[in-house]
Amino acid sequence: MKHVFPYRLYLVISEEACKGRPLNDVAEMAIRGGVDIIQLREKFDDTETFLQKAISLQNVLRKYNVPLIINDNLEVAKRSNAYGIHVGNSDSPPTAIRESWAACQCLGYSIEYLKQLVNKETLTSDYLGISPIFDTLTKQDTVTQWGLAGLRQIRSITEKPLVAIGNMNAQNAYDVMKAGADCLAVVSAICGAANPEKAAREIRSNIERAI
């Protein structure tokens, strides 16, 4: 059965990305603007610090019924009762996560090569992160810059929900959705915006125009 992934605007948030503003405040503003799923990504925190941020963020998200995804850290995902986890090629593989975390409701997996579209890790995942669509300063250890043509190619190969990430903003949201994305993952264009609620609303509006 095809996994249901109803989300359209996916915020990837970290304390660093919020530029000195409280992470929970930025998340709440973004939700009011149209974000409907949030990933907490804290690559440099120890597990306990990461966990406390996740629990605190959960208290905000539950008020709005917005699911929490944890980036990479399976222990934090489990202990915070997150909705799911997102992993890349250098993290725990989806098959191992399924075996060790039966309660996981949403498992995302980043795609760096076309050949990954037919492996067991992709088949095990609930959605695929296509990263980056365009170059970004947020993540510089990626292999492939997909562009719109690459996204269209991936869309032609798989029916899995596709979450596009990499310099997503209000100006390109419409084109990326039209190229085959099911959802846009945004970092700087919302977290770093002067008004995160307004920024999210503008991106969401262009997503809705495309679907």
Score class of each variant (00 low, 15 high):
142 T>E: 05
23 L>T: 14
145 Q>S: 08
99 E>L: 08
8 R>Y: 09
35 V>G: 01
8 R>A: 14
50 F>I: 13
127 Y>F: 09
196 P>S: 11
30 A>L: 12
43 K>A: 14
192 G>C: 06
102 A>P: 04
108 G>M: 04
185 A>I: 01
157 I>E: 10
190 I>R: 02
23 L>C: 13
205 S>G: 08
197 E>I: 09
71 N>F: 12
129 G>L: 05
161 P>D: 03
133 I>H: 00
177 M>L: 12
5 F>H: 04
75 E>L: 15
47 T>Q: 14
171 Q>Y: 06
16 E>P: 06
99 E>N: 05
100 S>R: 11
154 I>C: 08
166 G>S: 03
47 T>F: 08
134 F>L: 01
85 I>G: 06
197 E>T: 10
21 R>E: 08
48 E>R: 14
43 K>D: 13
46 D>A: 09
71 N>Q: 09
58 Q>N: 15
172 N>Y: 06
159 E>K: 08
187 V>C: 07
14 S>R: 10
120 K>N: 00
167 N>R: 09
97 I>L: 00
190 I>A: 02
18 C>A: 15
90 S>M: 07
43 K>Q: 12
108 G>R: 00
115 K>N: 09
58 Q>A: 11
120 K>M: 02
110 S>M: 02
34 G>H: 07
117 L>V: 01
207 I>R: 08
164 A>V: 00
119 N>L: 03
120 K>Y: 02
124 T>L: 00
162 L>A: 02
130 I>P: 00
102 A>F: 09
113 Y>L: 04
181 A>Q: 02
